[in-house]
Write a protein that binds this DNA or RNA. Structure first.
Lengths: 130, 130
DNA sequence: CGAACCTTACCACGAACGTGTCAACCCATG
DNA sequence: CATGGGTTGACACGTTCGTGGTAAGGTTCG
């Protein structure tokens, strides 16, 4: 009763697609899926033989990634960098400090207390580190 | 008693250097200073004739920018992007949401409570926006 | 006025990014 | 075991980034 309807790849991981299937349903090319993977953005688990297994979570992230990129004007490497900023707190911290040092050109300050918030973060961090 | 010791550019803005002078004292080439400017990282005011005027503040930021870049492994465009993340809260927010959606690979979680902190930020933001 | 310096606008050029494609080799399954 | 698909690695190609250079034209000032 194990092998029946599904021709390829029987009930192995239930809803896990291989790279080409994931490519079709996500809109990215297989090539891009591999590229996105080594950019660290979507890293699917592997089957024992080394096949990439895209589950619902991965597929979701692939779709939202696409939206994210073309709704704002981003590139994959940008998201990769944003990720790096989060994984390396010291980096994010250093960058934010430098940016704080730059007098904001009196443009339209949208969300008033955002900046001051970010800045308080540094103070806290410094005190904690000292 | 106005014109005396200083040969070029008399006591105009006191301590404001022209681009080549700034280049020498900052270590960047004049070309790069222009590049950095239209990357939005250091934008010196202009004389009425359109000459860039680098004051102590700009010079400081140019030096620290250099340190920032080669201490961590950054490029100018990266800092430019970080800047964009701050100036466009909606963008920064969208990116952070997407990253939150990515299950952090159980690597070495350095500063334990950093991530959770960043995530609380979103919650607060969402609640505030709702 | 003329020399020295600034400005913008290009051309160049190697490195990296975003993609495609092809080769060589491993897996799964009828 | 043969065929279809997966895997990595490499070549290719158009773009953008980081730099340098050079040309054409304003400024400053001796």
């Amino acid at each position: 009763m194990a092998s029946a309807t599904t021709p390829k790849r029987a009930a192995k991981d239930a809803d896990a697609l291989t790279i080409n299937e994931a490519a079709e349903t996500s809109g990215w090319s297989a090539r891009m899926l591999r590229y996105i993977e080594n950019a660290g953005l979507v890293e699917p688990p592997r089957s024992p033989a080394g096949y990439r297994l895209y589950g619902p979570g991965e597929l979701q992230r692939l779709r939202t990634l696409r939206e994210l990129l073309n709704s704002h004007d981003l590139e994959i490497s940008n998201v990769g960098f944003a990720r790096r900023l989060r994984k390396e707190p010291q980096l994010g911290h250093a960058v934010n400090l430098w940016l704080d040092q730059t007098p904001e050109r009196p443009a339209e300050v949208a969300d008033a207390d955002w900046l001051s918030w970010e800045q308080r973060k540094h103070k806290k961090l410094l005190e904690a580190a000292a």
